[in-house]
Amino acid sequence: MELLASKKRQKGKALQSWRRDFRKNGSLYLLVLPVVIFYFIFNYMPMYGVLMSFQDFSPRLGIGGSEWVGLQHFRRFLGSTDFQRVFFNTLKISFSTLICEFPTPILLALMLNEMQNRHIKKVVQTLSYLPHFISLVVICGMIKTFVANDGLIGSVIAQMTGNNSSLLMQANKFLPIYVLSSIWQAVGWESIIYLAALAGVDPQLYEAAEIDGAGRIRKIINITLPSISTTIVTMLILRLGKVMNVGYEKIILLYNEVIYDTSDVISTYVYRMGFENQDWGYSAAVGLFNSAINLVLLVFTNTISKKMSGTSLW
């Protein structure tokens, strides 16, 4: 009885504390409310649709009326000839993009941080930010134009290799096109967070290093990079956590049947199975499989980072 009364008192105190906090910071709670509603509607409510993965789903019958098939769709995907192709294409494209793209915003931020001429610095920043604000459809249209057999890049490559077909009709050219265009799109925008981290580095550290005779490279290695290492590790964890989510919009806009063997990934496969073949349950199962791998990678990366560097998301 005493334990029950103690728990009630604790709940009462917690409720009073929450009420006091709400009265004090009510305007802040109201500001965050639209964000909470947005994520609840668009991120949490759709989780109900995960049940489609275990059903022979029919839009006419709905989730409540469709036949339950258990793990049949998962076994079908893992046993299909498409699994190995889309799974390894996803890994290949994701890790190639990660390895090539992830360091470039850091290098750009370091370069801009060391640049003394403000006018040139602003021009470089503006030019590097612009691709992020261009529509993806326009970006892909530009890429197709550049790599066509008579395009700026395609014609040069054609003269060097003797192959006059568009680069997007050559399976072995898709990966470099995707990675290089991703770097062009993201390098400027992603450098902003590193520039913000660099702005927080104590200038006295640089002054002390100069007194000790350290040059610019030595200061970057011993002061700048260690000072922003937490930001770098956090961004790396977030990137590894979505390594399986290769952007299907860009790939769908660029690829074609000729290069399916190297360009088809899980997200585009889900799109085709769901919207073109109308195999809704199977498509949902493949998407859930992909999300499960992302979750495992995120938890694994976060755990390793926490043990090795003490930096983690939770």
Rank of each mutant, 00 (worst) to 15 (best):
L253S: 14
D212Y: 00
Y44V: 13
P226V: 07
V296M: 12
V138Q: 13
M45E: 11
F87C: 06
M244C: 08
K306C: 04
S94M: 09
R19I: 11
Y44E: 03
Y194T: 04
N277G: 05
L30V: 11
G26L: 05
Q185Y: 15
V286G: 01
R216Y: 06
L236Q: 08
M273Y: 04
G141P: 02
V32W: 10
K8V: 11
T224I: 00
R118W: 12
R272E: 07
W314Q: 06
C100Y: 12
K11T: 11
L168D: 01
V201I: 15
G70K: 05
T145I: 11
L3S: 12
Q170G: 08
W189N: 02
Y260G: 03
I63W: 04
P131N: 06
S58F: 03
L288S: 10
D279S: 15
A208M: 10
A284Y: 07
G12D: 02
Y44Q: 12
V137G: 12
I139K: 06
A285G: 12
K121Y: 07
I63Q: 03
Q125T: 10
L30I: 09
D82V: 00
I217A: 14
M115N: 09
D202W: 03
E207C: 04
K121S: 13
G281K: 07
K121L: 04
N245S: 15
N163D: 15
M169P: 00
M244G: 00
G188T: 03
G70R: 03
G62F: 13
Q55D: 09
Q204N: 10
L295T: 06
D150C: 03
R272N: 07
F83C: 14
K24H: 14
C100W: 11
T90S: 11
E101S: 14
L108M: 10
F133W: 12
L254G: 07
E2D: 05
R60C: 02
L225R: 08
Q204R: 08
N117M: 06
E210C: 13
S94L: 11
M169D: 13
Y248E: 08
A186H: 11
L152E: 07
A285S: 14
S80A: 12
K122V: 08
